[in-house]
Amino acid sequence: MIAARYIARNSAIAARLVGGEMMIMSATDSTFFTLNDVATVIWQAADGRTPLSEIVTAKICQEFDVCPEEAERDAEQFVNELSQHGILRVSELPIGSSSPAPPERP
């Protein structure tokens, strides 16, 4: 059985939703990212308490026309990349605190 993975937003980042696209900058290495729609949904749902698999089935597969296998594969890749830059924290256990998601405006 594959262990559940929990993801939480790191507090050492800056983030803002601009024109429907999430801008994120790591305070650790100043790497700048923009997230597409799917990645933005995952990032906003990264509260440290919801398993990644649940985010994929409950959010991604519901909101976007994508099969669960493909969505899970893409989500894993996205999470690995962001965790390498310190944007997301990943754990096999629920994570205590996650930085707040920015408001969904403008």
Binding site: R16, V18, G19, E21, M23, F32, F33, T34, P106
Partner: peptide, 19 residues
């Protein structure tokens, strides 16, 4: 164009004060 410049261009078009 770098990602940052792209976002700046987008903000300019949308009238968003990024800084």
């Amino acid at each position: 164009m770098s990602l940052l410049l792209e976002m700046n261009q987008k903000a300019l078009e949308l009238g968003i004060p990024t800084s």
